[in-house]
Design a binder for these strands. Structure first.
Length: 194
DNA sequence: ATATTGATTGCA
DNA sequence: GCAATCAATATT
């Protein structure tokens, strides 16, 4: 096995395929000699110009331009004026698509949520358009984790209710073994036997 | 349930 | 220019 860093060819494949296979891979961040490596446990796929949940569905704008470019490049944007979200561009050029990294396990701790993840890894828009296949400051590694059958759960994407039918696509993938920490007791009224 | 927060976008 | 929107989170 040559290099463990995930290559451009790896990301230049169907977005849902890339998203599913990223679960169990590692996201590695180098900050001034310090290395932080977390196992990816939750991602979402944003697939092309017709996916109304994908930012690029509105067309090529200064912000979405990066998704029209080559795979394996970072798409980092600021959301709600406070939090950054990290995506990796997928598929061929001119087909705008990306995978959002939603949660990782870092030093045994669950970093649950794209904004928290970017805060912990010190990812901001300075890394927008960074090449993630060269192992410089941010990259992905295959460390040999193999998922067992049934370990991968697929769900509707979060925060995209505006996207109509596209919001129903099961394009969020998550390790079933990972326990959701924050949202367990979100609304007391909804808690119930079901 | 709601405050926070500022870039991005659409419309003038 | 200005108003609306937003792939979230912390707090009440």
């Amino acid at each position: 096995m040559p290099c463990k860093i995930l290559s451009r060819a790896y990301f230049n494949r169907p977005t849902v395929t890339v998203a599913r296979s990223l679960i169990g891979k590692y996201l590695v961040r180098a900050i001034e000699g310090r290395i932080l490596a977390g196992k990816i446990v939750e991602v979402e796929a944003y697939v092309g110009p017709k996916d109304k949940a994908c930012h690029a569905s509105k067309g090529r704008t200064p912000r979405t331009d990066v998704m029209f470019g080559q795979a394996g490049v970072a798409y980092v944007y600021l959301i709600y004026g406070m939090y950054h979200c990290l995506n990796v561009v997928t598929e061929r050029e001119e087909f705008p698509s990306a995978v959002l990294i939603r949660a990782i396990e870092l030093d045994g701790k669950l970093i649950d949520g794209p904004g928290r993840l970017c805060r912990v890894l010190e990812i901001d828009r300075g890394l927008n358009r960074a090449d993630l296949t060269e192992g410089e400051s941010l990259w992905f590694e295959d460390r040999g984790v193999v998922l067992k059958r049934g370990e991968l759960g697929s769900h509707a994407r979060i925060g995209v209710d505006y996207a109509g039918a596209w919001a129903k696509k099961l394009w969020r993938f998550r390790l079933r073994s990972v326990v959701s920490s924050a949202r367990a007791g979100r609304t007391k009224k909804q808690g119930g036997a079901g």
